[in-house]
Design a protein around this nucleic acid. Structure first.
Lengths: 211, 211
DNA sequence: CACGATCGTGACGGGGCGTCACCATCGCTC
DNA sequence: GAGCGATGGTGACGCCCCGTCACGATCGTG
């Protein structure tokens, strides 16, 4: 580190105080540790103490941030949904018709989960499985965003009105399940999986009962 | 009880011995208690002792039958799948074409879950949710049976070959999800839900990418 | 009737859970 | 920079659930 031209930071320091910083750092550390532990031991076997041990913090500290293992898991799901939402919104904004949106959204989702899996090295031993994402705020928001986008693009296509709740649920279920199966195959083929899911839905929608 | 014409049971008694009978009775009692407890407290909150307490048996006895809460849950899922399988098989045997089988199977499933829900009075507080059925033998068998039936009726329809694993997964995912949503609506409309699911799939299958 | 096999039983050690009193550190004020 | 609440990290503690195991009651058998 050069000792010329070294300016100690002007103390107009915009950063939040140290209290605030360690708080977010701890929260994040717990989240990261939880990801690892869930991945290694599986959700059921994991304990709060396994998680907190990995952070070097004291056991009591955990409870300053989360009420339970379940809440950490929900926070993890929320985090995933929060990071996925902009991608979904981008697809929604660039598409006007149903097909374009559907293909974009599903491909975006498949790429997202494929990257997540790689990033965390979540080579879950087969048979073991994490619980499904619960209805956290962000997860619900994703659901709602899909439904609203569906409503918009279907109206644009002059499609007859259908049961939007059923349709949204079915599409998300397909994406989840095909996405899961896709990750079990080598090589992971997001394009192929997306093609399958899109064609299934696209073919089915015109045949749906009308309200 | 009349004291004339009372014959002590002829001891050609075909019934299995008492040991065997109490064994199956205990196993069943634990299963029933678990259903209740999971329904009332939710899966996460339920403890092995909550379950065993309701049977009047001692805590140690539980472990003569199941290794853990998880295993009881799996046994419950297995039980459900075992009772559903004959219904599924009946649909498979009476149908030769895809549409007939699909409609019959999905309607059978929706009626099945609707009856189960009523039978157990599983008015689950919304938000709380049971974990998804794991890959128990019977559950896997149901999956396989659906796939084989699909293969048979699709061949009969001279349909082009498609990715059967993806298709089966997608259909089961749709049935599960729509079935769930259906149960949240009043009145529960199995016909309407089945109509939706069937039309979605039926319209989609011809559009699927071919292998 | 007697004996061995088979469970039901509940007490017990182990361990994870959530809490709480304690104290270090932070941010603020004079 | 000294003083002083407020904030939040700490880990020991009591609680409860876990899974086990030695014991004894009961069943099946000859």
């Amino acid at each position: 580190m050069s000792n010329i031209a070294y300016f100690p930071k002007p103390h107009i320091d915009q950063r939040p105080g140290k209290r605030e910083r360690t708080k977010t750092a701890n929260r994040q550390a717990i989240l990261d540790a939880a990801r690892e532990v869930f991945g290694e031991l599986g959700y059921d076997a994991a304990t709060v103490r396994d998680i907190i041990r990995r952070t070097g913090l004291a056991s009591g500290t955990f409870y300053n941030y989360y009420k339970s293992k379940e809440e950490v898991f929900d926070a993890l799901a929320d985090d995933g949904a929060r990071r996925f939402r902009p991608l979904l919104r981008a697809e929604s904004e660039k598409a006007t018709d149903f097909e374009t949106f559907l293909r974009g959204a599903i491909l975006a989702y498949f790429n997202f989960v494929a990257e997540e899996q790689e990033a965390w090295r979540l080579d879950r031993p087969p048979g073991e499985q994490l619980p499904h994402a619960r209805s956290t705020p962000e997860v619900v928001a994703v659901f709602d965003e899909v439904r609203e986008a569906f409503a918009r693009v279907l109206a644009h296509d002059n499609a007859p009105p259908v049961d939007l709740d059923y349709l949204t649920s079915a599409c998300i279920a397909i994406a989840r399940e095909i996405g899961d199966k896709m990750l079990d195959r080598r090589p992971v083929d997001t394009q192929g999986a997306a093609d399958f899911a899109v064609k299934l839905i696209l073919g089915g929608v015109p045949a749906l009962p009308r309200l």
